[in-house]
């Protein structure tokens, strides 16, 4: 695994929903080696870089897509970037999802902005994939056409019932597992959702990989800031680091307390 830090040109930007923006960045060195689920650490005018999951990877064009939610000073700044600007990326960082076997029957579960890294995963599986995406409201739905274009089965859920299934992704996942054979689940979203996905995957005996988020500094495993409680093989607890040991973990490694 290797990473680099450089300024890269932004080719395109687009507003996907309120406060959610997409950036297409030309970065062949990153695109050529990135794996779905890895992230880049983006420099802003603030002290700490902002870790953002890679949404889509186009190795041929040498581009990556980043989908960013403006939820503070740093991410606001990233969302204001426009084509022609350059962006300072450190990446690709962390361990991506295990998508080596695209013949498996996969389910991706994305909550809110967590739908973005799920797109990269779904694009590996294509038709072999069901995507369960959850949002608060119909106005928050993102990447719908992108998932449809992959040919995967798209199941949208909203908390208020304004689009698709009225309820949580976890309910939809359980319904899906009752009726379908699934080899692997990949998920990213709010912690309570991911904990729910983990519990359901365990109940149905399906392998599950979870992408974690934590307040981060260096992004490469040197500062030990982004600790996350995990279980060792002997069952004892330890702290792993989201940037280096994750952000993707096997569900059984994680200790949600």
């Amino acid at each position: 695994m290797s990473y680099l830090q450089k300024q890269f040109p932004i080719l395109d930007t687009k507003c996907l929903a309120k406060d959610i923006h997409e950036l297409v960045v030309s970065c062949p060195e990153i695109a050529s080696q990135a794996i779905a689920g890895q992230f880049v650490n983006i420099r802003t005018s603030h002290t700490l870089r902002r870790p953002i999951s890679i949404c889509g990877i186009d190795a041929e064009k040498g581009t990556i897509r980043l989908v960013v939610k403006a939820q503070g000073k740093g991410t606001d700044e990233i969302c204001r970037m426009r084509p022609g600007d350059t962006i300072d990326l450190l990446g690709p960082l962390g361990n991506g999802f295990d998508v080596k076997n695209s013949n498996l029957k996969a389910v991706v579960v994305g909550g809110g902005i967590g739908a973005a890294p799920m797109y990269g995963v779904a694009s590996v599986y294509g038709k072999n994939c069901a995507a369960i995406l959850g949002f608060r409201d119909s106005a928050d739905v993102i990447l719908e056409k992108d998932f449809q274009a992959l040919g995967c089965e798209l199941l949208i859920c909203t908390d208020n019932g304004t689009r698709g299934f009225h309820g949580f992704t976890t309910q939809m996942l359980e319904n899906y597992l009752k009726e379908n054979h699934v080899d692997i689940i990949h998920t990213c979203g709010p912690k309570p959702m991911m904990k729910g996905v983990k519990d359901i995957a365990e109940k149905y005996g399906v392998r599950c990989q979870i992408s974690m988020d934590e307040r981060m500094a260096c992004g490469i495993g040197a500062c030990l800031g982004c600790a996350c409680k995990t279980k060792k093989e002997d069952g004892s607890s330890t702290y792993s680091h989201v940037c280096k040991h994750g952000p993707v973990f096997e569900a059984q490694q994680l200790d949600f307390d």
């Binding site: 934590e214 330890t238 702290y239």
Partner: peptide, 23 residues
């Protein structure tokens, strides 16, 4: 040493706080 529980990092104006705890 396993260090302190997370969150261990907080951004501040022109700086940051850490409480890694000698992991």
């Amino acid at each position: 040493r396993l260090g302190n529980p997370p969150p261990r990092i907080a951004e501040t104006p022109s700086g940051m706080l850490n409480s890694v705890g000698l992991q």
